[in-house]
């Protein structure tokens, strides 16, 4: 059955059920059965969780099997919290990923420059690591004013992020603390 036909039949079934009151929902049963037999052929489905608020609504993401690119994001009707529904933001989720305005290259702005220039990650990585090391080595305190051991970096601040996955949060925590950072904050504070 085509998706469009399925939707039409569902609408008809809902109407039929509405008019037959508490009578047996024969049409709906058939539709549910038929819908179960429908196969999506051209896309691969994966599940996800909405990236906006903290309700944690389930998503189904469809990617074109031949290009591997995402073509649709919708609510997961199996998910106990949202049962397939989404708000305006959640329903727009695809635009967060599939969006012509998303930069795909690292950008660098030199001191006092009035523009960004494209740089590759390898270059940025080397430069950023050098800067982190310089700031750390220059501002590292082994002891505080009272003479207690503190082993901390005073010259670098870390901000972020509630937008990371748990596993990335753990990686970030480990990395920042290994650098000796004490000024570690993020969205939860503000």
């Amino acid at each position: 059955m085509q998706r469009r036909t399925f939707l039409k039949t569902t609408a008809a079934a809902v109407t039929a059920t509405a008019f037959t009151g508490l009578g047996p929902a024969f049409a709906l049963d058939n539709v549910v059965k038929e819908a179960g037999e429908c196969k999506i052929q051209w896309s691969k489905q994966t599940t996800s969780i909405c990236a906006f608020c903290s309700v944690g609504c389930g998503l189904v993401v469809h990617a074109n099997k031949s290009t591997g690119r995402v073509v649709n994001v919708e609510g997961n009707s199996d998910h106990p919290i949202n049962r397939g529904s989404l708000c305006a933001k959640g329903a727009s989720s695809i635009q967060m990923t599939v969006n012509a305005d998303r930069p795909t290259k690292c950008m660098y702005r030199a001191p006092y420059s009035d523009s960004f220039e494209v740089k590759d990650w390898e270059w940025c990585k080397k430069r950023i690591a050098k800067l982190i090391k310089k700031s750390r080595d220059e501002s590292f305190e082994k002891k505080n004013a009272d003479g207690n051991v503190v082993n901390r970096t005073m010259g670098i601040a870390s901000l972020g992020s509630a937008a990371l996955d748990n596993e990335e949060c753990y990686a970030m925590h480990s990395f920042m603390r290994s650098l000796g950072l004490v000024y570690v904050e993020h969205q939860a504070r503000i």
């Binding site: 996800s48 990236a51 930069p103 690292c106 430069r127 996955d165 748990n166």
Partner: peptide, 30 residues
């Protein structure tokens, strides 16, 4: 001296997020 690094979106990686109800829910890479 400013760097902008573009990152993968939530559906371009796998990992978990925890909602307000403390449910740790896994996301897959689409």
């Amino acid at each position: 001296e400013t760097f902008f690094l573009p990152c993968a979106s939530a559906i371009e990686k796998e990992g978990s997020v925890s909602n307000s109800g403390r449910w740790m829910q896994w996301r897959y890479k689409a």
